[in-house]
């Protein structure tokens, strides 16, 4: 059982939902990333989504794009991101880490080399935003043969027949994009998400994470009623952007605790 699967299993037993905060590796400075990861876990995160900086993050909104730009100003590449995970694992062997990024940095490293390095560093799952299942069969096989979970997005416009195709390739969990748009857009429509999640559950027993529109504690609480995991990205990154270096860890921990409390209040 992968670390992601066992985490979901343990949470299900406790009747709790997974909180998955997202930060971009190297934002605001590479020296903070591992400390931030530990702080997020200490204040209630169950898994971490770590963004690989990319010069052209087409599926992200302006907030996460700026995070990429801040990281790239310090020349943070995929090799550095993997090193951060390796350092994180020195103190934390329990919390799953999911890398989220775009295909080009992965291809630049070589997909097989990347799969080896990611496994060795202690990565658990990989979400490659611009690799739809039709284009990444070989990559998925490489991940699975190393017991890394390939995470796939499902969107409000994904046709039912396509959901079948995607969940066959996915493992760990599936990630439902709760709105039409880029990360950090308007607030999600909870009634619509509820309906869509029912459709997805009829096709897979994989846990479902919901993200792209969870902007505050109340939304997180509502999503926690229907999803297995709540992914919070732009809101976390915004907090990083608005914090001084001294406030950084404290502010991110406070926000994570607030989200944790809201999720657990159901």
């Amino acid at each position: 059982m992968s670390r992601i699967q066992s985490t979901f299993a343990a949470l299900a037993q406790q009747k709790k939902k997974a909180l998955i905060p997202y930060i971009t590796a190297g934002d605001p400075h590479p020296k903070h990333t591992v400390n931030l990861m530990h702080a997020l876990v200490d204040s209630g995160a169950n898994m971490l989504e770590l963004g690989i900086p990319f010069s052209d993050p087409m599926a992200d909104g302006p907030v996460i794009q700026r995070a990429s730009e801040r990281a790239l100003a310090h020349h943070v590449g995929l090799v550095d991101v993997l090193q951060m995970v390796r350092t994180f694992r020195e103190k934390d062997t329990m919390t799953p880490v999911i890398l989220m990024g775009y295909a080009n940095p992965v291809e630049a490293m070589g997909i097989e080399n990347f799969a080896d390095q990611a496994k060795a560093a202690g990565v658990d799952g990989v979400l490659t935003v611009d690799y739809p299942p039709e284009e990444c069969g070989e990559f998925v096989a490489l991940l699975k043969s190393r017991e890394l979970d390939p995470i796939f997005l499902l969107s409000p416009t994904t046709e039912p027949s396509r959901i079948d195709t995607i969940v066959r390739q996915a493992s760990g969990f599936v990630y439902y994009v709760s709105l039409k748009g880029v990360t950090g857009s308007q607030n999600l429509d909870i009634a619509q998400v509820t309906e869509r999640l029912q459709g997805i559950r009829s096709k897979t027993s994989l846990p479902i994470g919901v993200g792209f529109g969870v902007r505050d504690a109340e939304t997180a609480r509502q999503v926690a009623e229907i999803a297995d995991a709540i992914v919070v990205g732009s809101r976390m990154v915004q907090e990083i952007e608005n914090s001084s270096e001294q406030e950084l860890l404290g502010n991110l921990a406070a926000l994570t605790s607030e989200l944790r409390a809201a999720i657990d209040s159901n």
């Binding site: 087409m58 599926a59 039709e134 969107s155 994904t158 994009v177 039409k180």
Partner: peptide, 22 residues
């Protein structure tokens, strides 16, 4: 039929755009 010119081309977009392209 999926837009490949040998190893080039294809559809490398987030799931959110797939239906629009289809």
């Amino acid at each position: 039929e999926r837009g490949h010119f040998g190893p080039y081309g294809g559809v490398f977009v987030a799931e959110t755009l797939i239906e629009a392209l289809e």
